[in-house]
């Protein structure tokens, strides 16, 4: 039986723990983005299939359409958050040395942000920059 002598409530102590060191937040965001990805992936597949065989001007016209661009931006955001969380779980399961684990988790975050930033930049340039 664990004593509860600290000023923090049991819930307060549990929050922020767990293998991800961010407790339920990680779990919840993984599920939330999974639901978003379910919808956005279907839309993304439709967009990509619609682009097959299109010459450059037609492809750009489609990608820079406001509705398509907004859905692409949402997909990029949701997918990058989801894949970062998923890869973090894999790292935490297979990388046991603490220093390597921290480096891998950092590299994972940088990767997700870099891919996301490049994709968002491209979509916005297509929409606004011509």
């Amino acid at each position: 039986m664990q004593s509860n002598s600290s000023m923090r409530t049991p819930l307060g102590r549990v929050r922020g723990l767990g293998s991800a060191k961010s407790g339920t937040g990680h779990f919840w965001l993984q599920r939330l983005t999974a639901v978003a990805n379910l919808i956005l992936t279907v839309i993304f597949v439709f967009i990509v299939v619609a682009l097959v065989g299109k010459p450059y001007p037609a492809a750009i016209a489609l990608l820079s359409h406001p509705l398509v661009a907004i859905l692409m931006l949402l997909f990029i955001l949701s997918a990058c958050i989801h894949m970062r969380l998923g890869m973090q779980v894999i790292i935490e399961d297979y990388v046991h040395e603490e220093g390597m684990k921290i480096l891998a988790v950092m590299a994972n975050t940088f990767f997700a942000i870099a891919v996301g930033a490049a994709s968002v930049y491209a979509v916005l340039k297509l929409s606004f920059g011509g």
Partner: peptide
């Protein structure tokens, strides 16, 4: 699920590259 997830993760580089090429 982990293998496909990792494949999709690495493949985002190609999607980003394709979008940047379009831009």
């Amino acid at each position: 699920h982990r293998v496909t997830g990792t494949g999709l993760y690495l493949g985002t580089v190609l999607i980003a590259a394709w979008l940047v090429a379009a831009a």
